[in-house]
Design a protein around this nucleic acid. Sequence first.
RNA 1: GGUCCGGUAGCUCAGCUGGAUAGAGCACCAGCCUUCUAAGCUGGGGGUCAUUGGUUCGAAUCCAAUCCGGAUCACCA
Length: 599
Amino acid sequence: MTLSDQLKVAVEFALKNLFPDVEINPAQIQINLTKPEFTGDYTVVLFPFVKLLRMKPDALGAQLGDYLVTNTPLFSGYAIVSGFLNMSVKDSVWVSFLTENFNNTSFGLQPEHENKVMVEYSSPNTNKPLHFGHLRNIFLGAAVAEILKTTGNNVIKANLINDRGIHICKSMIAWKHLANGATPESAGMKGDHLAGYYYVKFNDLLKQEVATMVAAGTDEKVAEKEAPLMLEAQEMLRQWEAGDADVRHLWETMNGWVYEGFDVTYKRLGITFDKVYHESNTYLLGKKLVEKGLEKGVLFKKENGSVWIDLKEDGLDEKLLLRGDGTSVYITQDLGTAELKYNDFQLDKSIYVIADEQNYHMQVLKLILKKMGEPCADGIYHLSYGMVELPSGRMKSREGTVVDADDMVDEMIRLSREQTEQSGKTEGFTAEELETLYETIGLGALKFYLLRVEPKKKMIFDPKESRDLHGFTATFIQYAHARICSILRKENIKLVPGTNELPALIVNEHILPLEKKMILQLEQYPSVLAAASDELNPSELCNYSFQLAQSFNSFYAELSIAKAENEEKKQLRLMMAVMTAMVLRHAMGLLGIRLPEKM
RNA sequence: GGUCCGGUAGCUCAGCUGGAUAGAGCACCAGCCUUCUAAGCUGGGGGUCAUUGGUUCGAAUCCAAUCCGGAUCACCA
């Protein structure tokens, strides 16, 4: 239990004892951190009780303060400032918190339980390489999965690969027409980039066809639907669903290239999955569900054979679930996948990390499953995040403004190399260690940049700002960690969790403000973790870690650890340093960001 | 038009289950390397928390209306 929680319980108990006749609602007890400009550590807000008890704030504060100081072992004193009761925590409490926890590898973690949660993220299409928008998705999903584990959940990380559909057929057709049998090897390209190249080519050719038809007098909308290439793509999709051997063969070959390309990128990003789903395997399940829905009368058929659901009662519209020609649409396969996931793992919760442009789609998906009485419906949760935009506006593949994921990673690593070399800090590393360091810094900066903003907010990716390795960045946190490691090296302390040996001590000295600020922040970590998990919000860990590193840097500039005033102080500060490094490592580790020991 | 999301410093963002004088980073200005790593530290300027009204001891935070920006409402995925 955190100190803040302990104080809350103590206040509740105190009020009950002091005023046994008055009913007090525990939810009204408000504990804040005391603002730095006042004396004290935690603040009890007195106003809610002033009215209830018909007492003046000062009188109430004095009674409550006296009670807490006398009847709990936590506080050394209190001060009342305009309706706020500021409690000062005993130095000995801070010291024992440190001694008990500085080396505790499960600090902040909650016990495991049976709750099964699937987090689906990444979910690429196999017609083009990963781009910058995918990176926000991937980092967010991976981080949320790790964060959920800290609160004891049994987490399954899943990737759903969108490997079928008309868009896939488009790159296949362009490849057939133009590639002359090119392979990733012969073209010297990553497989995903090769497929993406032909996807773009298809759209170029289609545009030409449409332009020709419009010039010949065809209506533009009609031309877009009836251009020969478009008809060819639709025909290919039908052949694919019918299992045509040639089409399937080409499809398998090209998808194989794309997977090889994705694997390279995932590996580089440090991203893994426990389970990979392919929509080519799930869309038929979706079709079966649609049939079931028809039998149940939840769905209905129109004259041309297309299948729909009526959601007007729920304030939505009619929604298409199966085309007139019997082929699936986007939501058909999603229905199947939802059911499959649930049956595979008996999920309590199924989290979809998907951009907010699909809020409506996800709302409809959940509603349809619910109406059909599928048990998987209740656990579906859409973790909706805002799109990544450029300062000039939205990224569009057709306009070539999409930032490629592989290029972005290269650029960040190149940048960290450049800045490390500029600062002349390359001594004492082997060439191999330097490469690792550049990757750690570059990738860390990229992940942090994308995770530091609250997920639901749309974010602007400013290439200039993202190049900055100062301030609110992973680099700042990595640097603080490297400084701690440097100190510990000199003191011959190895930073291996659970093995740090420092003498337990009783410090009689006064804890200085800079010291207390750090210990107080360390004490917050469990509640920060819990909040990040509750809200599925990794940015809380970014904010917290940055503030902790900031406090350490201030502390570091003012007070020496190695040359502390006496041995007791030195041990105390070493414990603080060890614990800070461990907490930073843990928090950043959840985000997939490594902290170097030297930089 | 309906629904959903956002609007806080020049820029990017915290703060939003109501609490003290609204915080960071970047940028700008002035200092700090003979002391554990200056990718750092210290200080400074910079705000009508979109607007208006309401709720109350107290509103950036809650409610209502309005304005601005975005997403979405396809036999695309």
